[in-house]
């Protein structure tokens, strides 16, 4: 240690410290002034280092267009901060020459913190994986992009959703209870997806041009808009059409659909699985299930932001009667565009 260079000075200090006390115990350690100054210099140096490291990372990322992983920044910053805090603890806070009990108290506090951190990180880090198995679709508080309440108009979530291939879930629930209650929210998102959308859109245009009596009645009884009732009808018609046309092409489309849903954590849950089986019939369902390889197909969204938003807005009408739980336990609203 550099204190050896100033051993004479340090000796002088501890010598003068020996004269204190009431004669009842050992003298407290007096940290030499040089040590304190030296530690301050190291701390300032490390502060400069941590800033320089952050600047260097930014420079590298921008100049060579390398996207550094998130942990690089965190690991460098936290390593330097840890070294700094150990120096503060040992020298400024005297733990080096102190009664060991004080250091032990601090170490146990740190252990408590690490337990706290580790288990929380295990939870957050694995949430997507759990969702994939257990949950039918995108879940508020889960691996989708969750929007709670009404967003300001300038916030463009749909672009982000298109970029990251994640569904958007709108939720009115307070954020921390959303995860369980809204498990069934937006179940239609994976089912009406890109492959059925042309069929769905065409049918919806037809229905909107001249809303059938049944839809007008449905809108009245369910207290939803006629538009939503038409969407619901279009949704049902689309699925019925797909089931009726058990042609090879439809089968292929449905296999795609199924793969899509699986890759979004959509179908392993018993409820939607039962629903799809009901829609397709057992035979077709099994053949579709054979084709569906869960991992081979990444998430697909049609990148069309407005249609994603529209699906979400249609959700209230669509979800009703499809899964009772959804309409019971959740209410949705979408930002008005």
């Amino acid at each position: 240690m550099a204190t050896h260079a100033h051993a004479a000075h340090a000796h002088h200090v501890s010598h003068s410290a020996d004269h204190h006390g009431d004669g009842s115990g050992h003298a407290h350690h007096v940290t030499p002034a040089f040590t304190l100054r030296f530690i301050l210099a190291i701390l300032l140096m490390f502060t400069a280092m941590t800033v320089a490291a952050a600047q260097a990372e930014m420079f590298i990322a921008h100049t060579f267009n390398i996207a550094l992983p998130l942990w690089v920044n965190v690991v460098i910053a936290l390593s330097i901060a840890t070294v700094k805090s150990v120096l503060v603890l040992l020298y400024f806070m005297h733990l080096k020459h102190d009664n060991p009990i004080n250091g032990i108290i601090f170490i146990f506090t740190m252990i408590a913190f690490v337990i706290f951190l580790t288990f929380t990180m295990l939870d957050i880090g694995n949430r997507g994986a759990v969702d994939r198995v257990k949950l039918p679709a995108a879940v508020a508080g889960g691996s989708g992009i969750t929007v709670y309440g009404k967003l300001p108009e300038w916030v463009d979530v749909s672009a982000k959703a298109a970029r990251s291939n994640r569904p958007i879930i709108y939720s009115d629930k307070p954020m921390f209870v959303g995860a369980v209650d809204l498990r069934y929210a937006q179940i239609e998102a994976p089912i009406i997806s890109k492959l059925q959308r042309p069929l769905y859109d065409a049918r919806l245009q037809e229905l909107l041009a001249a809303p059938p009596e049944a839809s007008v009645q449905k809108a009245k009884t369910d207290g939803i808009s006629i538009e939503d009732a038409c969407k619901l009808a279009a949704f049902n018609d689309t699925l019925a059409k797909a089931r009726d046309l058990a042609a090879p092409e439809t089968r292929r489309l449905l296999a795609e659909e199924f793969k899509y849903a699986v890759s979004h954590g959509g179908l392993p849950h018993p409820e939607p699985r039962k629903r799809l089986e009901e829609l397709l019939g057992p035979e077709l369902f099994m053949s579709v299930a054979e084709h569906a390889a869960p991992s081979s197909h990444g998430g697909h969204h049609d990148g069309d932001a407005s249609s994603t938003a529209q699906t979400s807005r249609a959700k209230k009408g669509l979800t009703q009667g499809l899964f009772e739980k959804a309409s019971e336990s959740s209410s949705h609203s979408a930002p008005s565009h």
């Binding site: 200090v13 003068s16 410290a17 204190h20 407290h28 007096v30 940290t31 002034a33 304190l36 100054r37 530690i39 301050l40 701390l43 300032l44 502060t47 503060v88 020298y91 400024f92 005297h94």
Partner: peptide, 16 residues
């Protein structure tokens, strides 16, 4: 950091 140093120095001053 500087204030931490002066705080540590203050303890030292009291001891001495």
């Amino acid at each position: 950091l500087i204030s931490s140093y002066t705080a540590a120095m203050a303890v030292r001053n009291a001891q001495l």
